[in-house]
């Protein structure tokens, strides 16, 4: 329970929200879908800035080069959107695997990234798609690779009065395939292992490889060594198996009472293998 909470702010624009956050004298936090905030036992938060009603933060748009998603867009809107192509399909799949309809109506595209729990589903998808995040501090904005935000923890990365306003995902042309998979006890339960991958093939060789995992780790990570191993090689079953082995080798596995570390490590390797197989098969089409 948020014991000390006394104040709600309802900004109508991003600028207003940033101003309220920047000028706040009390300990203030951003509220979007509220699913994590409501369950948080934080007795220091005194005020919340509710950005979920800011219209300019809720949209799913796409053109020939990129997809743009407003930070306060409920993930249900991504799941039910008519996005297509490699990036669009992957985002829809990942969004659809989040909890249930009731949760997807609350959880937002930006909140799933900024609250950044181990079991958050979208960050791994954002990472393999080389997504960028538009952060706004009133009018001024900066566009940064999503990995920067994740690696330095979103809360620390954002300045006072700065919010994530948009997630931008590039569109990939022919020769690229992607895959997203999640293992959990039930489809509604927290993820135990999340695996996302993207492969771009040119002239029979892997030109670009992306592999990201979450849930089994404390935060989403890119498996850069495995990516390097795959790059510039001809895809084969042996190569995929080797990359999967490499990806789980040095993994720092988060404890979870739902399943042992040994079990999850073994399953993770299999999931990575299948994920790469799927991405490669789709890229070849």
């Amino acid at each position: 329970m948020l014991k000390k909470l006394t104040q709600f702010y309802y900004p109508k624009t991003v600028e207003e929200a940033c101003l309220q956050l920047a000028n706040a004298k009390e300990k203030t936090s951003v509220l979007a879908g509220g699913t994590s905030e409501a369950l948080r036992n934080d007795s220091t938060i005194e005020a919340l800035v509710d950005i979920s009603k800011i219209k300019e933060l809720s949209y799913v748009k796409s053109d020939s080069s990129s997809i743009a998603i407003g930070a306060a867009t409920p993930v249900q809107d991504i799941y039910k959107s008519d996005l297509s192509g490699v990036s669009g399909e992957l985002l829809k799949t990942a969004a659809g695997k989040i909890g249930s309809t009731l949760l997807r109506n609350a959880i937002t595209a930006g909140g799933n990234l900024v609250a950044l729990f181990p079991w958050s589903d979208l960050p791994a998808a954002y990472m393999v798609l080389d997504a960028e995040v538009v952060c706004r501090k009133g009018k001024p904005k900066r566009t940064v690779p999503v990995i920067n935000l994740i690696n330095s923890k979103p809360a620390a990365f954002l300045d006072k009065g700065e919010i994530v306003a948009e997630i931008k995902v590039p569109v990939f042309k022919k020769g690229t395939g992607a895959s997203f998979a999640k293992m959990s006890k039930t489809s509604n339960d927290y993820s135990l292992i999340t695996v996302a991958s993207r492969i771009t093939i040119a002239d029979g060789k892997i030109k670009e490889a992306r592999l990201a995992i979450n849930a089994i780790t404390a935060q989403p990570v890119r498996c850069e060594e495995a990516e390097k191993l795959l790059t510039s090689k001809k895809p084969s079953a042996e190569l995929i198996a080797e990359a999967a082995k490499k990806a789980v080798a040095g993994l720092k596995i988060r404890k979870d009472y739902r399943a042992t570390e040994e079990y999850r490590k073994e399953v993770c390797e299999v999931m990575i293998r299948r994920s790469l197989e799927e991405s490669i098969a789709k890229a070849g089409k």
Partner: peptide, 15 residues
């Protein structure tokens, strides 16, 4: 218009 779990919605969110 959107169904949500009211147990994890703060009352202030439905102003």
């Amino acid at each position: 218009g959107r169904p949500k779990n009211s147990c994890i919605v703060l009352a202030g969110q439905v102003q």
